[in-house]
Measured scan of single mutants.
Amino acid sequence: GPREVTMKKGDILTLLNSTNKDWWKVEVNDRQGFVPAAYVKKLDSGTGKELVLALYDYQ
């Protein structure tokens, strides 16, 4: 199956793709996968990378 990404509340993840309104593709610890968009919030990183903050645990 697809590689699952797990996250804990407060984690910072790299946002790869947010074109789908329900599932965003993120990368964390060299793993890529989809997380519910409602579970993360975009951060203003000030760099080229888009980052998101995990609002809830997800696994």
Results as ranks from 00 to 15, higher is better:
Ile12Asp: 00
Ala38Glu: 10
Asn17Val: 07
Phe34Asp: 03
Ser45Gly: 12
Thr6Ile: 14
Gly46Leu: 11
Leu13Trp: 02
Leu13Lys: 00
Ile12Leu: 07
Tyr39Asp: 03
Leu51Arg: 07
Asp30Cys: 10
Gln59Val: 14
Pro36Gly: 03
Val5Ser: 03
Val35Asp: 02
Asp57Gly: 05
Lys9Met: 07
Gln59His: 13
Asn29Ala: 10
Leu13Val: 06
Asp30Tyr: 07
Asp44Gln: 11
Gly33Ile: 15
Ala38Gly: 09
Lys9Gly: 04
Leu16Ala: 02
Lys21Leu: 08
Ile12Glu: 03
Ser45Asp: 10
Tyr58Arg: 01
Leu13Asp: 00
Val5Gln: 04
Gly46His: 13
Gln59Glu: 14
Phe34Lys: 02
Lys8Leu: 07
Lys49Leu: 12
Pro36Tyr: 04
Asp11Met: 11
Thr14Ala: 08
Tyr39Arg: 04
Glu27Cys: 13
Lys41Cys: 14
Thr47Pro: 13
Pro2Gly: 14
Trp23Ile: 03
Val28Ser: 12
Lys8Val: 07
Gly48Asp: 13
Leu51His: 07
Thr19Gln: 11
Asp30Gly: 15
Asp30Lys: 07
Leu16Asp: 00
Gly1Glu: 12
Gly48Pro: 08
Gly10Asp: 05
Lys41Tyr: 08
Thr14Ser: 07
Pro36Ser: 03
Thr19Asp: 15
Trp23Arg: 02
Ile12Ala: 02
Asp11Ile: 03
Gln32Ser: 10
Asn20Val: 04
Asp44Tyr: 12
Ser18Asp: 14
Gly10Ala: 03
Thr47Glu: 14
Arg3Leu: 14
Val40Leu: 15
Lys41His: 09
Pro36Asn: 03
Tyr39Lys: 05
Leu15Glu: 00
Thr6Trp: 13
Tyr56Ala: 11
Glu50His: 11
Val40Met: 05
Asp44Asn: 13
Gly48Tyr: 07
Arg31Lys: 12
Asp22Val: 13
Arg31Gln: 14
Gly33Pro: 03
Gly33Glu: 08
Asn29Gln: 08
Asp44Val: 11
Asp44Lys: 11
Tyr58Gln: 01
Leu15Cys: 04
Leu16Val: 09
Gly46Lys: 10
Glu4Leu: 14
Val40Tyr: 01
Leu15Lys: 00
Val28Phe: 15
Asp30Arg: 07
Leu55Cys: 06
Leu16Glu: 01
Thr19Phe: 09
Lys49Ser: 10
Ala37Val: 06
Gly48Ile: 08
Ile12Asn: 02
Leu43Glu: 04
Gly10Lys: 00
Tyr56Lys: 14
Thr6Val: 15
Ile12Arg: 04
Asp44Trp: 11
Glu50Phe: 10
Lys9Ala: 12
Leu43Ser: 03
Val40Arg: 01
Leu53Gln: 10
Ser45Gln: 10
Gly46Tyr: 11
Val28Ala: 11
Asp57Met: 03
Gly33Trp: 14
Val35Ala: 01
